[in-house]
Amino acid sequence: MSENGGPMIVLEDVSKWFGDFQALKGVDLSVDRQEVVVVCGPSGSGKSTMIRCINRLEKHDRGRIVVDGIELSDDLRDIQEVRREVGMVFQQFNLFPHMTVLENVTLAPRQVRRSPKQQAREKAMELLERVRIPEQANKYPGQLSGGQQQRAAIARALAMGPKIMLFDEPTSALDPEMIKEVLEVMEELAKSGMTMIVVSHEMGFARAVADRMAFMAEGEIVEVGPPEHFFTNPQEERTKQFLAQIL
């Protein structure tokens, strides 16, 4: 465990290949404690691959990744240690369909942290209140709307008490009227001081919440900067083109 003060996440010269295709080309990024970084970029630019490397859903082939003072290596214990501190929310929610919402949320605390049942339930209900779906606790994911499922998935990720939350296009699979309810929950989370990396094209959300914006293209981080500069005065040609397309 590292002392407070150092950066929460450090990526140094991280590269990743899928066969002959190089998905990440020497990515450098440092994220401070309580910082919110929103990553955007065209599809196939390596955004998802980058955040999936941070909790080792993908193994990086070169470079270093240090999460809260723990360097990711092949050591399974280090990987488990990092995963316990990093919560992840997926585009397709990926709730466990054979468990109720409450069981989804209590699963990791019960199995990994060995919390007593009653304590895990109380904590889970607290989180479900926070994402505003306590009344759905005993339903199965298939009975919920997309927005409710994604909020349940956020509660599930928070149940382990992570220091970092990764969001991989959390609103891209949602119907338009449900995007807002999910973004509101994420905004509250950001205000509570959570360290977050969010892959998203919700630029309104990014303006309101991001401490820094990062633009990725072709496996590289092209430009990083505070949102006010990023949106009004981008430096790189590729950033300008991308922003022109999506804004």
Partner: peptide, 11 residues
Amino acid sequence: AQIEAAQALGL
């Protein structure tokens, strides 16, 4: 994706 979600939780 189910396996990844479970791994991400630290199981």
